[in-house]
Structures are given as structure tokens and as C-alpha cells.
Design a binder for these strands. Sequence first.
RNA 1: GGUACCGUGGCGGAGAGGCUACGCACCGGAUUGCAAAUCCGUGUACACCGGUUCGAAUCCGGUCGGUACCUCCA
Length: 449
Amino acid sequence: MTDIRLTNTLTRQVEVFEPLVAGQVGVYLCGPTVYDLAHLGNARSAVNFDMLHRLLRHDFGVENVTFVRNITDVDDKIIARSIESGKPIGELTAASTQDYLDDLDALSVLGVTNMPRATEYIAEMIAMIEVLIAKGHAYVASDGNVLFHVPSMPDYGQLSRRSQDDIIAGARVEISASKRDASDFVLWKPKKDDEPASAAFESPWGLGRPGWHIECSAMSKSILGDVFDIHAGGNDLIFPHHENEIAQSRCANESAHMAKTWLHNGMLMVEGQKMSKSLGNFFTVRDLLGQGHRGETLRLALLSGHYRAPLDFTQAKLTEAKNRLDSWYRAWNGATPATDVPAAVLTAVRDDLNTPQAFAEIDTLKGNPAELAAAAQFLGLLNLSPEDWFQGGGSADDLTADAIDALIVERADAKKSKNFGRADEIRDQLTEAGVVLEDSAGGTTWRRG
RNA sequence: GGUACCGUGGCGGAGAGGCUACGCACCGGAUUGCAAAUCCGUGUACACCGGUUCGAAUCCGGUCGGUACCUCCA
């Protein structure tokens, strides 16, 4: 079997992947903060690493892969949104989580083995913070914050390759009188008077809530152990989030690593700029689905570039993705998929998740429907029947299938009596309604354009 | 300023010292009452300047340009 090769951010090298425990793989993927609908950038990360998930399941067996994707359900933005909308925090996070899962479902992202919520692991976070304090890596500041003391870790900054001087030279470091060092970051913050009680938890340091980074350190330790195989997320998380996770986990666990391999996907761009919640230039997955784009079309578009490279999201890309899927559905035509995934496609995906290469391989399989289907379904595509793909998905004001069939019958009669004028009228009427007719020896079929 | 990533045909996008993907679009042809779909044919591209080499888009050095990160972010 071909080796799986992955670009490890920690070493900046493509490495052959070997699990810490032979035959068993543990992956932790940073999931969303749930206060709003997921944007396409969130979806990109989920879809990119869903390919990793699928590959690992294929190569190691479903029962040997633990794939964790967390939910951050305690956070400043959640509190702010809750106050702003008048919705209780629990209600807001539960609804947002469900929206997120529904979106991923539309994008054919596999369910994960564990979906820990931060609020369920407060005790583990507190325990870890206590260990960090005991070991001299953290302290309670005069303002009540518990802070990680960055200079206590001599090799801090390995993942992002930053020296502490670089970090301090950065323009946005929050200088606080209570910090011993400007680069120290929060492990636990005290509840403020105007914050709701539902976002506060008892701790040895009084009512408060965890800092963002400690969540992932505590949850990954609980589920995957002190050191695990792969930690993944967007490349905007390299610093400070992942760097700080590493600091906390390694100092608390006294381990040489947190995760052996670190994977980071590139940002989704819109008109040359990063799509992000803070810039407000984002589409939600819901927006695009609502415009009539299929989940599979979005998935193919998101996988059409290499996961590490920036992906410029455009209308043209969506059209291309849709056309490519049309051609695959047509070539497949519902044949029973082959048992094995074609080797060339597997090889491509094993090579640092090279999905564009995998798509190119699928394009060469159009003469072999069984293999084409096996390959595409391995990539999470071609999940519908060809009939549903071509004829489904109409909206309420579109012509119904029955109405279309009736017009096809009328057109067939017109053609039989050589009344081509009427036949063309019907074709034009259907074209207008977004329906394309295809005549063949076996009769007329139709699809929604 | 620091840390990374990137620059490939009209567009998207792999590849990675000699065999020059793949898709979309365009154009021509076959086919069709007209279409659609399909099939056939048409494109020799790697930012720029040097260097290494028998040979460089690929390696090395430099230049220019782009993007991200530098404590909200996937």
C-alpha cells in the first residue's frame, strides 16, 4: 500500500505518516465557535479534513480511527450574541451547533467519532490549569485572570517559528499591567458583573470561564491522550491558538509533543481577500444552498484546490464544479460501484490529500462507470441517484416533474405529426423554465439546467 | 519590521531536472428536424534576471508581485 504523506507544519516537511500506536489513529480537528451560521471558510476546513478522515478510515479501518472535532460553546462572542439577541446561551449554542451539523451533512462531511463541547470539560480544564500553576508555568494575576507564563517554556514558538521578541514586537499584543510578560495568555478569566451567570463556572479562582486555548488542550488530552497523531485546523490558528495549546499541553503533561503531525488548511478568499467573520465578507453555507447550489457542488468546489493553498471562491468555480459533476453523473448513470477505490485516486489522496489530482484521475474513468463511482464516492461525491441529481432540486415555483412530462408527451405528438414549430415552442418554454430536453433513440429525457 | 506560503496556457489547476496532466471556456467537424448529450480535432504555458547542467517550468541566487499570520478568526 502506498504510504500516506502529509505536510507537517511543525517541521515544514512532507512526512510519511506513521501512527504512534500501529494501526490506530487519533485526530483532533478544531471545530467552530457556535454563535452564528457557518461561513464557507469554516466549511472548507471541515471538508478538507473530511478527506483525511475518509482516507484514514479506508486505510486503517473505521473502528481504528478516532476523529475528534470539538464545539466551542463558551466564548466572548457567544455571550455578546446572547445579550444582543436575548436568546439564552444554551439555546443559542444548541441551535448553532445543529445548524453547523446540518450544513456539514449537506456537504457530505462524515460524522465524527467524538464531538466534545467545551462546557462539558470544565473540570478537566481546571485540573490542567492547576497542574500548570503547580509546575510554575501559570499564575493568578492581580486582576483575577489566570495566565500562562510564556517565558517559563524555553522552546515556545516552534510551530509558528516565532521568537518571543518577534511576538512582543507585534502590533496587537495586549499589554496589561497584570501580566508578568507581554506574551502571557489567559487560561481562566473571572466573570464580569454584566456577564450572564450561565456563562460562568465555579473554579478555585472564583466564578469565571476558560480561555480559548485551554479547551482544546483539555479535550484532546481527555479523549486522545497526552500525545496524539494529528492535530488539524485553519492556518490562521497556527498562532496564537495552536502555539498556545502546545505550550499548555506540553508543560502540563511534560511531553515532547502535543500532536506529532500538525496540518493546516489555507484560507478561503473572496475577491483576493480572506473570507472571515471579522471582515464581514463572508457567505454562509446556507446562503449558497439557498441559491440553489447543491452540497456536492460546494464540496467539489472546496476540494478543487490543494488544501494548503489559498482558495479563491468565485461563481466560475461553482459553475465548473457543477459541470464536472454533471459529466460524472452522466458517465456513471447509476452503475453499481466497484468494490475497490481505484489505485490512482487513492495514491493521489494519500499524497498530502491531493484532491485536484484525484479529480483528474476520475475524469479519466468516464468509460468505466463502476470505478468512477467508487472513486467519486470515496471522495464524498456522487451520493445521489443520477435521476435526483439531474431532476431533483427544483424550487417551489419551478415546473413539477408531472408538468414537464406532460409537455414532453405533447411535444412527441407534435414531432410525430411533423409540427416542428409546436415542438420548438415547447422546447423554448422548457428552456425558459430551466429545463433541458435530451432526445435519444430511447425517448426524451430532461434535466434541470 | 518579523514568520510563512505562493506566482503554470483565456480561466481553474496538478506536476516537479529530459516523456509537457486534467477540467472549464472558445473554435472547427461528426451526429441531430432543431437542440442537448456524446465523439473527433485544435492550445507547447510555467513572473523577471542571472547561475548550475548535455538539458531548468522544476535546482541555486537575486528581483518584482500577491496572500496570510504577528494574541477575535477555520
